[in-house]
Structure formats: C-alpha cells, structure tokens
Design a protein around this nucleic acid. Structure first.
Lengths: 147, 147
DNA sequence: CCCATAAGCTTGAGTGGTCAAGGAGTAGTG
DNA sequence: CACTACTCCTTGACCACTCAAGCTTATGGG
C-alpha cells in the first residue's frame, strides 16, 4: 500500500478519535456537539456574528441542507436567530444571539482545553503542531481562520 | 484561537473533503463507500482474510454495532461471509470471499489512484506525505498498517 | 456443579448528515 | 416587460452511525 493512501486513511481514522474526544467534552459540559460548536464558532468569527446559510455551508464543508438541519436545534435553544436580508428576500442569515455569543465563549474555553490536552506532552512540540496545521491546509479543507 | 484548536478543526475539515473525494470515486466505479472499502481492506490485511467483529471495530474506530451494520450489505452482495469459531460460539468472524478479495484488489487500485491525485503536484513532496503520516500516527488513531 | 460476571454480537430508537426535488425570489436578455 | 435561468433555502426519503438494552455463550470462584 502506498504511503499516500496510508496517510489518507490515517487521517480519516484520526478524525474519528478527535471528534469523539471533543464531543464527549463539549456535550458533557455544554450540551452541544463538536459540529454545533464549529458552527457557532464560525458565526462568531464572521462580521456581525452572522452569515448566509450558503456561506456557512461552504465554510463548514456541509451541504446547504446540512446547515438548515444543524441550525434548527440551535435556534430552538436560543443560541442563534434567523435574520432576513433587506436586499434579497431569498437569503436568511443565521446570527448569534447575545446568549449564543456568551455560551460560545464558554464552549471555546473547553474546546481550547481539549485541544491542549490532545497535543500535550513531549510528543507534540509547538513546531509540530504548526507543521501539522500547515500540511492540513494544503489538503483543501479551507480551515477556520483563513478564507 | 490557539494553534492547537485550529489544527484540530482543520483536521476535521480536511477529512470531510477527503472522504467525499474517495466516496465519489469508489462508489462511481465499484459501488462501495470509503467506509466499505476500508473495512474490506482491513479484512484483506488480516491473516486468512478474516477477523472477529470486535477487533474489526477497534481497528476501524467504530462501535461493534457499527460493524454489524456495515457488514450486512457486504454480506448481501457476497463480498464477505460470516464464519463461526470452533472454540467460541459467541464469535462470528467476518471473512472475505473469493470475489470479495478480487473486487478488493480492483478497489485498491482506484483508491491508490485517488490518493495519488490528492497528493499530486509540487505542493506534496514525498517527505511531506511521510511527515503527515507520522504526525497523524501520534494522534492516537491506530492507522491501518501498524497495530 | 452452579452461579455471577463478563465477552461477543445484534437490535430498536435516535441523530446527523446526504441527495433529489421543489418553492420562492432575483437577474439578465429579448 | 416577460421569460428563462439561476440562487437560496427547505423538505422528504434515506443512510450510516451511535447508544442502551438484551440474547447467547464463556469463564472463574464458591
């Protein structure tokens, strides 16, 4: 088996472990999944705390319908609201509410902790973390702090 | 946002892109998903082409029930069979059939091609692919050619 | 020998996503 | 101004997986 295929499969495998770890922490402390958190985080990074659903989908690597479905429960619990666009009646922005923004900063703290634990220890000097981030960026996944 | 968290989220994002790409190719040419392929590949690497479901689950990063559900359609189309264990009546091995083994080698070829495309170009010297594989291995996902 | 506990597997219910279809609105072109 | 083609979003049907519960078989200690 080629190194390339092996690497790709390792990445897929590593992801499931990561996701499980984040999910456990986030759902235990805040009742949200990693997917929920990522969605909120992305909103939080957008100007005005709001984005069109289509752009959210692109940023998260989901389909439009995935976003619709993911947003629904977050609206129900009041972390996100739906806002119309004055110019274009087709678009429905997803916007962080005040409590959404507050809860997000709490979640962010535990996500940071979790990430720190994952990359803790002598096996993970800072340079390697940065190196990994760099390699992953080349893989086409747009990432969260770029665009 | 810390580099660690950013890296973790990038990895998650990169995975969805990778999976989509493999799924498209594999399902187009062979009618299987990446998950199916990985399962078959793992079986193919095991001595005798067979494994206990529990071990398969561990190797793939799934739960036991995930394996049960994933194996079912592969049994239906005759790529895998169920084999009892002489010593322990609880265990049901999953074993590649002859046609399963043959189809697997075809799938492997297209998976290799896909991986090669993904890591093609000057952005991906061999050393970086190996480096990425190494970093991913530290992340706890057991990978497919070790154990 | 019997029982308690544990291992291996499957099943029902629920979740989180996909895809295909469709409704509503916008924009460009004759 | 009308039509066509496209964009944004949602919905129904489905799929892949999880968790919790349960069944069957194994095992070790009294």
């Amino acid at each position: 088996m080629s190194e390339a295929l092996d690497t790709a499969l390792r990445l897929v495998r590593a992801q499931t472990a990561l996701v499980r770890r984040f999910d456990a922490r986030l759902s235990g402390l805040h009742g949200v999944s990693l997917a929920d958190f990522t969605l909120l985080l992305r909103l939080g990074q957008a100007p005005g705390g709001r984005m069109r659903r289509v752009d959210l989908a692109e940023a998260l690597g989901l389909t439009a319908s995935g976003v619709t479905r993911g947003l629904a429960p977050l609206e129900r619990i009041g972390l996100v609201t739906r806002e119309p666009d004055a110019r274009d009646a087709r678009v429905a922005y997803a916007a962080l509410t005040a409590t959404g923004r507050q809860r997000l900063t709490e979640m962010l703290a535990t996500a940071e902790e979790t990430a720190a634990e994952i990359f803790a220890g002598p096996a993970w000097p800072a340079a390697d973390i940065a190196g990994l981030a760099d390699l992953l960026t080349r893989l086409g996944g747009t990432g969260l702090s770029g665009r």
